[in-house]
Each structure stands twice: as C-alpha cells, then as structure tokens.
Design a protein around this nucleic acid. Structure first.
Lengths: 213, 213
DNA sequence: CACTATTATGAGCAATCATTCACGTCGCGC
DNA sequence: GCGCGACGTGAATGATTGCTCATAATAGTG
C-alpha cells in the first residue's frame, strides 16, 4: 500500500448496512456541493450538512476532502471507459465513421449527467500524485484503444496513428466538455454530426468511403 | 462604473514611476506564484514576498486577489486576439488551409509562453460575473471573426458557419492547450500540421483545393 | 528646508476551513 | 437484556488566508 493510497482510501470498511448508506449519502451530497460551489468552497462541513450527517461521520469514511473528490472522479472515469467499450462491442459499426460516431456519442452522453460537477472534477481536482497518475493512465488507455482501432481499420489514412489518436481523443473530450458547458450550448445532435464529420474526414484524409450517396 | 469594475480595478492610479514599477513587480510575481502554486494556494502574501514588497503595497494597487488574476488573464486574451488579427493581415494567405494554419500557429505560439500559468488562468480563475462576461465576449469575438472568414471564403463547404466556427475555435484552443501542457508533449510542428489538416478537411468537406499536387 | 501628496510597511484582525476526539447511540450475538 | 464493537455526533482546535490600518518613508514643489 502506497502512502498515497493510505491518504485516499476510506479509513474504515463499513460492516453494517447503515454504514454503507452513510457512505452513499456522503458521495451524493459531495457531488451536489462540489458542482454548486466548486472544490475550494465545497467545504466538508457543507457536504456533511447536505448529507444530513455530522462532520465526524464524514471523516469516518474519508480520511480527507481530496479522497471524496477522487472517488467521484474515478467512478466517472470508469463509467466512461466501460461505456465506450460496451457500445463498441454492441453496435459493431463497419465504417470508420460509424466507429467515430460511437465514440463521440459516448462522450456526449458521458457529459450530460452533471456538467458542472465534471468541470470541477477535471479542472479543480487537486493535482496530487495519485490522482494525476490515475488520470494519465485512463488517458493513455483511451488513446491506445483508439490507436488500435485506427491501425486495424482499412479506411485509416494517417501517417502517425499515435499522434492522430491523441488528437482525436483530446478533441472529442474537450470540445464536448466545453460546448456543452457553454452558457449558450450547442444543439447536441448537430454537435455529434459535426464532430463525427470532422474527425472522419481527418482520419480518412478526406476520402469518402466507397459506395455512399 | 459597475460594481464589478469597482471590485476589479486598481484602487489607485500610479502617479510616480516608482508606483508603476511596483505594479509591474506585483504582476510578474503573481504570474510566477500562480503558475507554481495554483490560484488557491497562490496567496497574496506569497505574491508580495516574491515581488519583494509588503502586502500592504499590493493592496494599494489591487483591491483583492481576483483582480490580479483578471489583469493577467485580460492581458493574455488581448495578446491572443491582436496576434491573430495582425498575422492574418500580414500573411494574407489565399487558401483556406493557409488561413487555418495561421490560426493554429497563433494559438500554439500563444501557449508556449507559460502553459502552467495559462492552465491556472483558464481553469481556476474565479468564475465571477465580471470575468466570465469578459471571457465570453472574447470567445464570441473570435467565433465571429472566424465565421466571417468562413463566410467570405469560396472553399468553405459547411452548412452552418456559426456552429462550424464555434467548433473550430474551441478545438484549436483546447487541443493546443491540452497537448502542450501534457506530461508527454507532442511535437509542435506536427501538431500544427495535424490540426490544420483536420480543420481544413472539415471545413472544405474534404474537397482538396483546386490544383494542388 | 519645509510642506504635502504619494507610496511603502507589516503586525494583526476576522473569517474560514479541514480535521480531531471525547463522548453518546445503536445493532447484533449471546 | 446485556455487553461490546460499530457507528454517529459536534464543539473545539489549530492553521491559513485575504485584507486593513496606523504609521513611516520617500518624492516632488516652492
């Protein structure tokens, strides 16, 4: 067990259902509070108040404030990864455009949940070693997955699939994030179409797939 | 004068050169401190210490901590806007690709300065009314400028130039930001080429410009 | 030099926050 | 129903922070 893990893990494993419930109350309360006040002003006391538990109980399950945000973030990252993988294996699109569209759609849906919270998690999360490493690992996994898709697909027309994958992953993630959280949000289906078009044309070097009206 | 401006403007107009120098010391010190510690931990006392002035002097010129970051950010935004406009009028590229490339290059150069500080400014800046409105205004100006270019250019092949401009501006800004600040930064000239290619193919619907090898 | 406006100082205030700990309350096996 | 460990409580603590204000130093002017 690293010192980081000791600093982020729950201090106590719940043994009664009562305890598990309290843990959950804390998490949902924290999600609301962070989304509304940001990380710095999302105080542990506010979280406890919203969860209707005492501040002491909060510290029974989370050793410090960071650990709460980390748990929320990890849950979100996990959800994102599994969603992409599940959908890719479910929908099995043929064309590269279809594959890209699945990616884009997954990203959009992943951001609909609670854009405010997401913003806080991505931008204001404490950049401590453990979390940073975790995020980097997810990022790499996504890029590797994308690169693999590109390498296998015959429509791909880019020289360096690694760089292309990085650009594609970043672009989807960030553009969706930004344009949904914007004060004047774009139309979602249009966003999906445009991003899909942009990336597809980029990755296929603008060559239309064979036999398409 | 709005209440926001009263809250962000310097408390006192410098009348002696000594004062102007102090203001400048504060700004540069703040840039370093924010870049190194982030906004929350970049305390006013630390800034004063780094600037080698007393904390009291700092508050002679900035009514509060937010105002310092705002001044840094506004300076950056101004530099970005004028750089794009200047270069567009200097280089006068014909093809849409050339125009896009100028955009991309300007964005990249704008980010080379101090990526850490930029990150803090973009992500952790206080989302107070005045600043938010200011950022939004700049964003709109950039989008409008881009849209105008698209509307005028014969190679443009997108239906909704407004949405396309929003996506293009966001993509360039964010991807450059992310990929330069990454722990494993991409090669800059490659980034320029790839982003230019992606956007050009998107905006021209993948149709190569006439007479190009 | 003397006088005033401008600039500089830094100890200290008031507020906030994360976290602790000594003490209750509850659930469950016997 | 008793005893013990699991769970819950919240006033209190210690540290940090943004910012003020009474006072001192300095520059400009005659």
């Amino acid at each position: 067990m690293t010192s980081d893990e000791r600093r982020l893990r729950p201090r106590k494993q719940p043994r009664q259902t009562r305890a598990e419930l309290t843990r959950q109350r804390i998490l949902t309360a924290a999600a609301h509070v962070f989304a509304e006040h940001g990380y710095a002003s999302g105080t542990t006391n506010r979280i406890a108040e919203r969860a209707r538990i005492s501040i002491g109980s909060l510290y029974q399950y989370y050793p410090n404030k960071d650990a709460i945000l980390v748990e929320l973030l990890v849950a979100h990252l996990d959800a994102g990864m599994t969603a992409v993988e599940r959908r890719q294996s479910e929908e099995l699109p043929d064309s590269l455009e279809g594959i890209i569209r699945v990616f884009v759609r997954a990203a959009i849906e992943n951001h609909l949940d609670d854009p405010q919270l997401l913003r806080v998690m991505v931008e204001q999360a404490p950049r401590s070693g453990a979390l940073l490493e975790r995020i980097t690992r997810y990022e790499r996994a996504r890029v590797a997955y994308m690169r693999d898709l590109l390498d296998r697909h015959p429509e791909t027309r880019v020289g360096d699939t690694h760089t292309a994958a990085r650009i594609a992953v970043s672009t989807v993630e960030l553009a969706v994030h930004q344009l949904i959280a914007s004060p004047d949000p774009v139309d979602l289906s249009r966003l999906e179409d445009e991003l899909t078009a942009m990336l597809t044309r980029y990755l296929t070097a603008g060559q239309a797939p064979p036999a398409t009206g």
